[in-house]
Design a binder for these strands. Structure first.
Lengths: 335, 335
DNA sequence: CTGAAAGCGCTAACAC
DNA sequence: GTGTTAGCGCTTTCAG
């Protein structure tokens, strides 16, 4: 791959002229333009973004720091973020932290060394490392520090919504299967759920679950609930875990929604794939991703962002795992 | 963020000494080492990987070009690839092509400009663009060109395995729901399936499906199969599509595996999530990903790789959607 | 309109 | 052991 000097020489012009032509900055005569383009085409020249970045102090790259690209929520976020970043001319470094502090720290160093223009992070395990970072950072789902804008869906309201939905569908013996304590998002869902129950003076049960997306462990947990059949409604912290619960119930011969109604969180593709389809609280992933990128680009461009917490509304998506409206009619007669 | 000159000045040493210290190349006295480290710590200095790359001609970055990080197969691959790349000190650019030729071409330019050390690509829509590329490339799943090593699981054998399994489980009226024509992988599964059927002198039916991972479209297709209940076994090109088929069947009151047995492909987490759990052909994703990275690193390091096609064995994972062994016993008496 | 030259941050000869 | 210097490929003044 030739460099700009080579192109300049071949085209018989100065190096600055080639630069001006490539970047469309300053005047270049039509005639010269053609000559340069010809040399570029023939040699397969592509400007070196690294050299450019060194000078312009903008690498046009972003770091995406997430626990696990295998998780539907994060891979959907990644898709939206990638698409938007692209629109602004930015390319993404993929950093899977595996919720591992060491790995995240290392990645943070790598991103710094590659001089990424900004970082979008979620569920940090080394929040202190972000305190004196000189790179613009946006966080989603989890709070990192008071100086970093966090974008998330309104998990609290979502949790309350979940409770209220089960309540309205006639459930009075409700269980919440709650996510790991270290995740702000699932913690908020739990809070919203609890508060919803208090408002209706309903006593609810909660069991915790200590790691993300590990179906096996969830199954073990479920076996510890001796009388799961005594509940008539379950709110699970996310869709995949909810699907696992559904499977467990089906295997015990418990009918959904007839015996137990169930509601998840996220509105991932899983909801439509399971039978019966899963009622859930939708997180507006497209909005979350778009906002994250737009705020980050603003920060990169030196704009001041005063807001430190940005909540996006969630939405109930009703499906078969809680009674559909037609069935609710007849059910309410019984109630 | 200071630069190396700044650190050198503050530590009262030469710039080359700092470089030597950082890169552990050449001698530096203990005393000076301490002074330099102190300045690095105090200033939060991180070496500029961009500048370094310009000189060393190795950016220590790789491009991962895949259709869609939302697809479980690709996000699992991405996870393995990321992990291995990391082990060799490489960081990944995430490039979702969406199976879109324009997007892939643009990304190829971006990757070139960022001087990635290598590219791992799958399911390219612009194979010609790879012909004269000056960057090491490894492809997985799909063939790009005769000069590019393709790593994939043995989809042909996998397809045959799927047929044979259904056959052994007693199915004689078998349907294959086949993936898009443009995907080498699903095409090979189809071929293996067909050939397996020929060997047993069984006539099979095949319906095609023209886009990836679009559950809605699959459902529309299914409605066109008037008599799906006449089949007793179905092989679907991947697990998600298979799960969709299962759901469709359940809604029609067809029992799995009693009325129709079903087998998928990939062994993604979906298999364990659906009820009954889904029998499938496992792709050894960990091996595929590890191999892809290792071969790519070899290429980057200038090694010659003569092999142009590397197949990894698939494996049958039997679950409830085809009879489990105990049930097979009694079933074979009937047969 | 165009080119020479300085400088971005780094590495590696090459002297001392 | 260490510092000076050239040069990696680029952009951008600043003359002409």
């Amino acid at each position: 791959m030739p460099n700009i000097r080579e192109i300049a020489k071949r085209a018989g012009v100065g190096i600055a002229t080639v630069s001006r032509y490539i970047n469309n900055t300053g005047y270049v005569s039509e005639e010269v333009k053609l000559k340069i383009q010809k040399e570029i085409d023939e040699s397969g020249y592509t400007p070196n973004a690294l050299a450019r970045a060194i000078f312009t102090k903008n690498s046009k790259t972003l770091g995406l720091m997430i626990p696990n690209i295998t998780n539907p929520f994060f891979n959907q976020m990644a898709t939206v973020i990638e698409e938007h970043a692209n629109r602004f001319g930015y390319t993404l470094f993929l950093c899977n932290t595996e919720d591992n502090e060491e790995k995240e720290k290392e990645y943070l160093e790598v991103l710094k060394s590659h001089r990424v223009a900004g970082i979008i992070a979620s569920r940090s395990m080394c929040k202190d490392e972000y305190l004196n970072i000189q790179i613009p950072v946006i966080s989603f789902e989890n709070h990192i520090s008071s100086s970093i804008l966090t974008i998330s869906s309104d998990n609290y309201k979502g949790g309350k919504m979940a409770f209220n939905h089960l309540y309205e569908r006639g459930c009075r013996n409700i269980l919440h299967i709650k996510g790991p304590k270290t995740f702000d998002a699932t913690e908020m869902r739990y809070q919203g759920f609890i508060d919803g129950a208090k408002e209706k003076n309903i006593e609810v049960h909660v069991i915790g679950f200590e790691s993300d997306f590990q179906v096996k462990m969830l199954e073990e947990n479920l076996n510890n609930i001796i009388n799961i059949e005594k509940y008539d409604g379950i709110f699970v912290f996310n869709d995949i875990a909810a699907a696992t619960v559904m499977k467990y119930l089906k295997e015990k011969g418990i009918r959904i929604p007839d015996d137990i109604q169930i509601i998840g969180f996220d509105n991932s593709f899983i909801c439509e794939l399971v039978h019966p389809s899963l009622t859930t609280i939708e997180q507006p992933i497209k909005d979350l991703g778009a906002l994250a990128v737009e705020f980050l680009i603003d920060l990169i461009n030196g704009e001041d962002i005063v807001i430190k917490n940005y909540l996006v509304e969630t939405k109930l998506i009703q499906r078969e795992s809680t009674f559909l409206s037609s069935e609710v009619m007849s059910q309410s007669l019984v109630d």
